[in-house]
């Protein structure tokens, strides 16, 4: 029961304070559940990011379902999903009821939001450092990384990059690296 309440509150807070969509929530989820509560491991977050990309649907909902499933089964998934959509619904309904869509271009507001996006960028850089540190362990991993980076800059479709990275990475980790650790999720 306590874990369900915690899931609800944490996802409610995450959705309430994160601007920029489901993608921007990922570092905040990582910070909340790995650093603050120590309920998940760093590798869980890596799997979460991968799975949110594979399953069609919203990143925010997929992340909530993954974390909820991991911590408290299907009940946890359900509660976390409710937690993540409730703040959006409340805020948008208030906005839709009070403000017409026409007069929106407030310069100060736009500037504030640009700074929030810069803050999210900083979080993503930190996340990339932490994930990359666990991923790239020897000089032999560099060629694969270079190939994938080239794809990242040449191909604009994210789904293609993700699929390619998954296939190449899976082959490399299975056949190219000796004594690979058993993984669990």
């Amino acid at each position: 029961m306590r874990i369900l309440w915690l899931l609800f509150m944490e996802f409610f807070k995450i959705a309430l304070f994160t601007i920029g969509g489901g993608l921007a929530m990922i570092p905040v989820i990582e910070n909340t559940f790995v650093t603050k509560h120590k309920l998940l491991k760093e590798s869980d977050i890596t799997y979460m990011i991968g799975i949110t990309q594979f399953v069609p649907g919203l990143i925010a909902i997929n992340s909530a379902v993954y974390v909820g499933h991991k911590l408290a089964g299907w009940k946890g998934s359900f509660i976390a999903t409710i937690g993540v959509i409730l703040p959006s619904m409340l805020i948008i309904m208030i906005i839709a009821a009070l403000f017409p869509l026409e007069n929106l271009s407030n310069f100060h507001l736009l500037e504030a939001f640009q700074c929030v996006r810069a803050c999210v960028l900083g979080m993503f850089l930190l996340l990339a450092y932490r994930v990359g540190k666990n991923l790239i362990k020897s000089i032999r991993d560099i060629p694969l990384l270079m190939v994938l980076l080239c794809c990242l800059f040449c191909v604009s479709n994210v789904v293609v990059i993700i699929l390619l990275a998954c296939v190449l990475g899976g082959l490399y980790e299975t056949f190219g690296r000796q004594g690979a650790k058993k993984c669990s999720f």
């Binding site: 590798s43 990011i49 991968g50 994930v131 991923l135 990275a165 190449l168 990475g169 690979a180």
Partner: peptide, 8 residues
Amino acid sequence: KGIKWAAF
């Protein structure tokens, strides 16, 4: 194993 690279 592959999904880690995809996530990165």
